[in-house]
Amino acid sequence: MAENILIDIIHIIIPILIVASSFVAVYLKDLIAAAIAVAAMSLLLSLEFFILQAPDVAIAEAGVGACLTTAILVIAIRATKRMEDEA
Protein backbone atom coordinates (compact mmCIF):
# COMPACT_ATOMS: atom_id res chain seq x y z
CA MET A 1 0.00 0.00 0.00
CA ALA A 2 2.81 2.37 0.88
CA GLU A 3 4.50 1.60 -2.43
CA ASN A 4 1.33 2.49 -4.31
CA ILE A 5 1.11 5.84 -2.53
CA LEU A 6 4.79 6.50 -3.35
CA ILE A 7 4.28 5.65 -7.04
CA ASP A 8 1.20 7.89 -7.14
CA ILE A 9 3.16 10.79 -5.66
CA ILE A 10 5.92 10.28 -8.25
CA HIS A 11 3.28 10.16 -10.99
CA ILE A 12 2.05 13.55 -9.79
CA ILE A 13 5.45 15.20 -9.25
CA ILE A 14 7.18 14.26 -12.51
CA PRO A 15 4.57 15.68 -14.93
CA ILE A 16 4.55 18.91 -12.91
CA LEU A 17 8.34 19.11 -13.29
CA ILE A 18 8.03 18.37 -17.03
CA VAL A 19 5.56 21.23 -17.49
CA ALA A 20 7.69 23.53 -15.31
CA SER A 21 10.87 22.86 -17.29
CA SER A 22 8.95 23.43 -20.53
CA PHE A 23 7.81 26.82 -19.21
CA VAL A 24 11.41 27.62 -18.27
CA ALA A 25 12.53 26.68 -21.78
CA VAL A 26 9.99 29.07 -23.28
CA TYR A 27 10.68 31.84 -20.74
CA LEU A 28 14.47 32.01 -20.94
CA LYS A 29 16.08 34.50 -23.31
CA ASP A 30 19.46 32.74 -23.32
CA LEU A 31 18.96 30.09 -25.98
CA ILE A 32 21.66 27.72 -24.72
CA ALA A 33 20.04 27.71 -21.27
CA ALA A 34 16.71 27.03 -23.02
CA ALA A 35 18.30 24.08 -24.84
CA ILE A 36 19.51 22.71 -21.49
CA ALA A 37 15.98 23.12 -20.11
CA VAL A 38 14.64 21.13 -23.07
CA ALA A 39 17.21 18.43 -22.27
CA ALA A 40 16.03 18.36 -18.64
CA MET A 41 12.43 18.06 -19.82
CA SER A 42 13.41 15.15 -22.07
CA LEU A 43 15.24 13.39 -19.25
CA LEU A 44 12.25 13.74 -16.92
CA LEU A 45 10.02 12.44 -19.72
CA SER A 46 12.33 9.43 -20.04
CA LEU A 47 11.99 8.83 -16.28
CA GLU A 48 8.22 9.01 -16.59
CA PHE A 49 8.28 6.46 -19.42
CA PHE A 50 10.39 4.17 -17.26
CA ILE A 51 7.94 4.45 -14.35
CA LEU A 52 5.09 3.64 -16.74
CA GLN A 53 6.95 0.37 -17.57
CA ALA A 54 8.05 1.23 -21.10
CA PRO A 55 11.86 0.82 -20.90
CA ASP A 56 12.26 0.70 -24.70
CA VAL A 57 10.77 4.14 -25.13
CA ALA A 58 12.71 5.37 -22.11
CA ILE A 59 16.06 4.33 -23.63
CA ALA A 60 15.19 5.89 -26.98
CA GLU A 61 14.01 9.13 -25.35
CA ALA A 62 17.13 9.40 -23.17
CA GLY A 63 19.46 8.78 -26.09
CA VAL A 64 17.79 10.91 -28.71
CA GLY A 65 16.09 13.58 -26.62
CA ALA A 66 18.65 14.28 -23.95
CA CYS A 67 21.87 13.82 -25.95
CA LEU A 68 21.50 14.23 -29.70
CA THR A 69 18.75 16.86 -29.75
CA THR A 70 20.71 18.99 -27.28
CA ALA A 71 23.87 18.63 -29.37
CA ILE A 72 22.07 19.63 -32.57
CA LEU A 73 20.34 22.58 -30.86
CA VAL A 74 23.63 23.86 -29.39
CA ILE A 75 25.36 23.51 -32.77
CA ALA A 76 22.55 25.43 -34.46
CA ILE A 77 22.61 28.17 -31.79
CA ARG A 78 26.37 28.51 -32.13
CA ALA A 79 26.02 29.35 -35.81
CA THR A 80 23.42 32.05 -35.09
CA LYS A 81 22.87 34.41 -32.16
CA ARG A 82 22.91 33.25 -28.58
CA MET A 83 20.51 35.75 -27.02
CA GLU A 84 16.92 36.03 -28.12
CA ASP A 85 15.92 39.53 -29.22
CA GLU A 86 13.35 41.51 -27.32
CA ALA A 87 10.55 41.58 -29.85
Binding site: D56, I59, A60, G63, C67, L68, A71
Partner: peptide
Protein backbone atom coordinates in the same frame (compact mmCIF):
# COMPACT_ATOMS: atom_id res chain seq x y z
CA UNK B 1 14.48 -3.95 -23.53
CA UNK B 2 16.09 -2.04 -26.33
CA UNK B 3 16.78 -2.74 -29.96
CA UNK B 4 18.47 -1.34 -33.01
CA UNK B 5 17.24 2.21 -32.77
CA UNK B 6 17.89 2.60 -29.04
CA UNK B 7 21.39 1.12 -29.08
CA UNK B 8 22.28 3.07 -32.20
CA UNK B 9 21.15 6.30 -30.55
CA UNK B 10 23.38 5.53 -27.54
CA UNK B 11 26.46 4.83 -29.69
CA UNK B 12 25.78 7.95 -31.76
CA UNK B 13 25.56 9.94 -28.51
CA UNK B 14 29.03 8.71 -27.58
CA UNK B 15 30.42 9.79 -30.95
CA UNK B 16 28.65 13.15 -30.61
CA UNK B 17 30.48 13.54 -27.29
CA UNK B 18 33.76 12.99 -29.15
CA UNK B 19 32.74 15.66 -31.68
Amino acid sequence: PGGGFQGGAIVASGFAMIV
